[in-house]
Amino acid sequence: MENSALNIVVLVKYVPDAQFDRQLSGEAHALDRSESILSELDEYALEAALALSDARGGVKGGNTVTALTVGPASASVAVKKSLQIGATQGLHVSDDALAGSDASATSLVLAAAIKSLGPVDLVITGMASTDGETSIVPAQLSARLGLPQITFASALDVAGNTVTARRDGDDFSEEIQATLPALISVTDQANDPRYPNFKGILAAKKKKITTVSLADLGISADAVGHAGSLTKVTAAAERPARTAGTLITDSGDAGIQLVDFLAAAKLI
């Protein structure tokens, strides 16, 4: 079958960098979002989209890869980085009312944003956000868009109108097929993400980022954020940081000392 051009939306989330200490604060136990970056796991989604586009002649071949984020004004950083890596254009839903949105509110906004783009062949997401870590936004989004979902794909390919993906579970490795349009989430096994190069960084300056508000999407502010979310965090506590215990250097009997330690802890 002929491989026609694809119109792909990639979801990219702006998340606090896990290399730094992450803190919850305030009455709503909200996450501090300074020191944020493009979620590492969404780079695999972007790479999957770019690989499909490249295989069909890229932009010249009529393919589009739209990087979509829902987040604060600063989240444009994630879209810009996606454009530098190779996305064609960006869409940023930015609104102060979004703060504190849970998965259900986020998926509601993502669905409206994707619908605003007109017909789309594929929505590709990361396997999990590195802050929320729920892995449920993709499933909720596909339910809202009425698209078949293939989550946790460790390999995928599109031939004609059919997407085929492999999923590696604990008990089975499965091959899944769906007809386009479809939603796919990809794992960090799916590919090796490319880095932005100098050419890409220059090219990104000419690419377009469309910023829209909730009102532009016809979503009322109380359907999202802390007010519109269907879950709330009622208490939060930081786990005491782990500290280093005993450190020994092997001088020939460390294996025996290890067994002594296990015996003292009643683990053998």
């Binding site: 280093a244 215990g245 005993t246 294996g255």
Partner: peptide
């Protein structure tokens, strides 16, 4: 990893682990 280990051993795993296995069997 040693920053979060309750018990850390600086050593070669190919020496430390077999010795621990022998010791457990012996005990």
């Amino acid at each position: 990893i040693f920053e979060i280990a309750d018990f850390g051993i600086v050593g070669d795993l190919f020496k430390v682990l077999p010795q621990a296995v022998e010791e457990i069997k012996k005990r």
